[in-house]
Nucleic acid binder design. Sequence first.
DNA 1: GTTCTTTTACGAATAATATCGTATTTTGCT
DNA 2: AGCAAAATACGATATTATTCGTAAAAGAAC
Lengths: 127, 127
Amino acid sequence: MVTTKYIKPTESELEILRILWERNTASVREVHEELSKTKEAGYTTTLKLMQIMHEKGLVGRDDSVKTHIYHPVVSREKTQKHLIGKMITTLFGGSSTELVLHALGNHKASPAELEEIQQLLNNLKKQ
Amino acid sequence: MVTTKYIKPTESELEILRILWERNTASVREVHEELSKTKEAGYTTTLKLMQIMHEKGLVGRDDSVKTHIYHPVVSREKTQKHLIGKMITTLFGGSSTELVLHALGNHKASPAELEEIQQLLNNLKKQ
DNA sequence: GTTCTTTTACGAATAATATCGTATTTTGCT
DNA sequence: AGCAAAATACGATATTATTCGTAAAAGAAC
């Protein structure tokens, strides 16, 4: 079994991944357009970043057409898992519960969402 | 009112803060000893990092004694809040619930902890 | 097929982090 | 006082991440 080692995306790379996770595929131009809404950066900067991500294996691309189309290779779930894990360790002294309490306490959730959490909670309690 | 602007700790700085949050105060030597358990680094590297953190205002220190004693200035809570916020935005598409579900799902919690979460959940539902 | 536009490739500059070597300072001990 | 041990100060280097300018390539439009 080939265990592919986890590559930690940098902050800028995460921003790009976020867009790709949302859209599934996108050209550099599209990613850059989206990025520009929240941050200042030249087009070639975005391009270079995405090329580096491609080298690292964070994203794949279809370059059979003129305008290359990129897609995420690392899954959102896996990335979430890694970052949450790290966060729990260094920021919450190992207690996932503390993280949950903070997340719930500081950011409002809808009744439906609360219900969803309740469901999961019920399941966990049963065991 | 003087709003002190948030200083984002780097990754290494977070590791040091974690130790200071745990112990409240510590010398460079003590922090370095603790750090050495999980990572390779020279003593002066740790020293330098802590000096920089002092300049930035992330930590304070008592240098009236030979061996300077450091303490955290930024609170764990505030730092948690910032990082969670960022995480929810870029990694969970703005949904704190998704973060909660992930955290709960991937990392086991004790019955007591589950109960604690239940309490908070009940409170939130009431509103 | 020449020109214009868009895109990619790529090297290089800059900036931010992290690491470490060496000199100096401080203090305890004899 | 003189010496050794431990600590700090600080500049230099290394490493990683980000930014961007310029040239070459690929089509599209005429």
